[in-house]
Simulated scan of single mutants.
Amino acid sequence: MDEMIRIDSVDVYNKLFGFETRHPLITVVDLSEATRWPLRTKFAYGVYALFLKDARCGDIKYGRKSYDYRDGTIVCFAPGQVVEVEMAPDTRPAGYGLLFHPDLIRGTALGQEIRNYSFFSYETNEALHLSDEERQTIRDTLQKVEQELDHAIDKHSRRLITANVGLLLDYCMRFYDRQFITRSEVNSDILTRFERLLDAYFDTDMQRQEGLPSVKYFADKVFLSSNYFGDVIRKLTGMTASEHIQNKVIDRVKEQLLSSDKTASQIAYELGFQYPQHLSRMFKRITGLTPNEFRQQS
């Protein structure tokens, strides 16, 4: 494996692949026009990157897992992510890329909303698979960004560029929503496994050693990123994964309150709470009653 390459600016990326830098904070590239490319490299991204792949020409790994991508898919990376790319022999990249530095959107509406585009933190088996029509929509939007990059920079440039980048990301959100629906059978299996894992966590008393379970714990168990896992659960149920965990905890508390003489503090420690008052606050927020009020009322 070659030394890790840090992509801290769009200029670093452009020089690496032989592209012209037209704007210091953003670039749109046609990967088929690259004049050079490493066959096997690790990239540490300091910029946002979105790639529309026209052909599978190798493997993209995040951590120890490979992206589920094929012709006509989108993969995205955010600053701070490390990605391993291994090109297949006698192939060359094909498709389009958009890379932009966080400074481009700092202080803009897009900068305030960028965290809502959770697909930048998706990991494996989570690439966005596009229809031909969707792919053309993405390509058309990329061309709008390119047109602005070809235009002389003026006082409108930044607003128009960020607006078109935001439009592109909104289309990706729409297409991901469609993909959640078309993969409903697979996603329903994820929900079923989540519910089983959640029951098993408390049935085996793991909370006594590990404390309350996290969303990441269950995401890791089903081999998904926390963001993608959370989005699947929310799309299927209308509730976040954290809300599911909290509801399971509340159900366990109610069961203990009604079937034993244990105090609320005892129940809290048994369920993995570090402090009993944390349980009381959660219980009151969700049920409208304190644990003792619930026991007396029932």
Results as ranks from 00 to 15, higher is better:
112 Q>W: 08
264 A>D: 15
117 Y>V: 00
146 E>A: 11
112 Q>S: 08
227 N>P: 07
243 E>C: 08
161 I>R: 01
123 E>Y: 14
118 S>Y: 12
48 Y>C: 11
29 V>P: 03
95 G>S: 04
180 F>L: 12
224 L>K: 11
61 K>W: 04
51 F>M: 09
150 D>I: 04
30 D>K: 07
67 Y>K: 12
63 G>N: 03
85 V>C: 05
51 F>I: 12
222 V>Q: 04
221 K>Y: 10
174 R>K: 04
277 Q>K: 14
252 R>K: 15
140 D>Q: 06
59 D>F: 08
43 F>P: 01
199 D>R: 15
163 A>G: 14
246 Q>N: 15
30 D>A: 14
126 E>H: 01
174 R>S: 10
168 L>Y: 07
11 D>S: 15
204 T>E: 13
127 A>R: 03
203 D>M: 06
48 Y>I: 04
33 E>G: 00
43 F>W: 05
73 T>M: 12
153 I>A: 13
237 T>Q: 12
249 V>H: 00
121 S>M: 05
116 N>W: 03
66 S>P: 01
250 I>G: 02
29 V>C: 13
89 P>L: 02
256 Q>A: 15
86 E>L: 01
250 I>W: 01
72 G>T: 05
73 T>R: 05
44 A>E: 05
192 T>W: 02
50 L>C: 11
127 A>Y: 00
149 L>A: 05
104 L>D: 10
208 R>P: 01
157 S>R: 03
101 H>V: 10
32 S>A: 15
43 F>L: 14
105 I>N: 09
255 E>S: 11
159 R>P: 00
78 A>C: 05
211 G>S: 09
267 I>Q: 07
118 S>W: 11
73 T>P: 09
147 Q>E: 13
63 G>E: 10
190 I>D: 04
297 Q>G: 00
32 S>Q: 03
260 S>C: 12
289 L>A: 07
261 D>N: 15
243 E>M: 09
95 G>Y: 00
26 I>K: 10
293 E>W: 02
190 I>N: 00
113 E>G: 02
184 S>A: 01
56 R>Q: 12
197 L>I: 02
43 F>A: 10
207 Q>T: 10
238 G>W: 14
105 I>E: 09
34 A>T: 04
3 E>L: 15
146 E>V: 07
65 K>H: 11
109 A>T: 08
218 F>S: 04
111 G>R: 01
14 N>A: 12
47 V>H: 01
105 I>K: 01
47 V>Q: 09
195 E>H: 11
273 F>G: 03
222 V>H: 05
158 R>C: 06
93 P>R: 04
95 G>Q: 00
115 R>S: 11
75 V>W: 12
188 S>H: 10
282 M>W: 01
280 S>N: 05
19 F>R: 01
242 S>W: 00
290 T>R: 07
54 D>C: 09
96 Y>D: 06
124 T>S: 14
89 P>R: 07
162 T>K: 00
224 L>C: 09
83 V>E: 08
275 Y>G: 03
64 R>Y: 07
44 A>F: 03
11 D>V: 09
4 M>W: 08
62 Y>I: 12
132 D>N: 15
92 R>C: 01
145 V>H: 08
253 V>M: 01
6 R>D: 14
